[in-house]
Design a protein around this nucleic acid. Structure first.
Lengths: 110, 110
DNA sequence: TTCGTAGTTCGCAAAATTACGAACAATTTT
DNA sequence: AAAATTGTTCGTAATTTTGCGAACTACGAA
């Protein structure tokens, strides 16, 4: 993204989080994961957006490594990328569980 | 964001994920959580970016509900919003754990 | 060969994100 | 009163994101 130095782990976690940062993409991931496997058209049917936009969201998920696609002419089959899915799961788990909150320090939420 | 209808849960999860979708914000959250509490200046020292930009990132985390701030003149104290932090934890856990992958369906990652 | 199906890519527009320096407030110190 | 400290807000710029329709590719069917 830029040349600022953040840890690689933080960059990877941010990349996963960013890919999940849109309701359409969350919906796609849940749908895909619940079926194990399906075609573009099935995904498009689940979403209230144009196919060009669905295609873009799928590309972003693919670039982030969370899903993978396979051409089965004339259709395109999509599924979860299991290895990276497990990786993301580990990253988020570590992120949330390595932290043990002790006290509330700020009382105001301005 | 727009008027498309996604489930409220998906919108909430996407909102949390989006807030986590930048390495600077991941760094802030980890730092804050490791200390329980600290001041703006401490956060700024951890990051390779200008204070105005840090302030913007803090605002986004606050808007997403993940942190909270309190003025302690002339400083500003920040900490994790514990209730929403737990909520996010639950959302991500459910998202990743409710899913049981069975088979690999796509072999190609084009 | 022409048509239909299934998706991707292109071109565009609007909006949001990221980043910075400068200006500004609010208090404390000198 | 003047100066220093601590952050936020403003104005601006560059880039990215989101979204759509239209054009395009690739294949199979009529």
């Amino acid at each position: 993204m830029n040349t600022k130095n953040y840890s690689l782990d933080n960059e990877q976690l941010a990349r996963f989080a960013k890919a999940m940062g849109h309701p359409a993409r969350i919906t796609i991931l849940q749908f895909l994961a619940s079926l194990d496997c399906c075609y573009f058209g099935d995904i498009h049917n689940e979403l209230p957006i144009a196919k060009a936009t669905v295609s873009q969201h799928l590309k972003e998920l693919k670039d982030a490594g969370l899903i993978q696609g396979e051409i089965e002419t004339p259709k395109v089959k999509y599924c979860i990328n299991q290895a990276n899915w497990e990786l993301a799961k580990v990253y988020f788990n570590e992120f949330f569980n390595s932290i043990h909150l002790k006290e509330v320090c700020c009382t105001t939420v301005d």
